[in-house]
Amino acid sequence: MSGGADPGVVNEIAHSSAAALLDRVRHSEDPMVVERVLTIVEREGVDEIAELWSSSPSDSLPGVLWRLYMLRAWMREHRDAIARLWRVGEPVATSASAIAGVDQAPTEDDIVRLADSILSGAFTGDFAVAMERAAAFTDVVALGLRVEAKHLSDMAGDLTAGSGPSVPAGTTDSSDSAAEHAKRHATRAARLMHTAANLLVTAKDFQHAANLWRRGKLE
Rank of each mutant, 00 (worst) to 15 (best):
V201C: 00
V9P: 03
A73E: 15
R36Q: 07
R26L: 10
V10E: 09
E219N: 09
L159E: 09
E12D: 13
R26F: 02
M1D: 06
S60F: 08
S177E: 05
S56E: 10
A81Y: 01
E108S: 08
R188K: 09
F206D: 02
E132F: 02
G144M: 07
R84S: 02
T107K: 08
L68E: 02
L159G: 01
L159D: 06
K183C: 02
D59Q: 09
G216R: 05
R113V: 06
G216K: 04
L21Q: 09
M32P: 00
N11I: 04
P91H: 07
E48V: 14
F123T: 06
S58V: 10
L71H: 02
S54H: 04
A128N: 05
T171H: 14
H185I: 00
S58T: 06
R36G: 02
V33T: 13
A179M: 09
E51H: 05
K183E: 10
I49N: 00
R79C: 03
V167A: 07
E12T: 14
G157F: 09
V64Y: 03
Q207R: 13
I99T: 15
F206R: 02
G162K: 10
P7G: 13
D109P: 01
V167Q: 03
Y69M: 07
R214A: 08
A149K: 04
W74A: 15
T187D: 13
R26W: 01
S97R: 04
D109I: 09
A190K: 12
S95V: 14
E44L: 14
S117N: 13
D23L: 11
A142D: 13
K150M: 14
E51W: 04
T195R: 13
A128L: 14
T187G: 03
P62C: 08
R87L: 04
L38R: 15
A156M: 06
V37G: 00
D59R: 12
L22P: 03
M1V: 10
V25M: 11
R146D: 10
E35C: 04
M155I: 09
V25D: 10
M75W: 04
V9L: 15
L85I: 02
A5D: 11
T195V: 12
S56R: 01
L61W: 12
D47N: 03
I49P: 00
A98F: 07
F123D: 07
T195G: 06
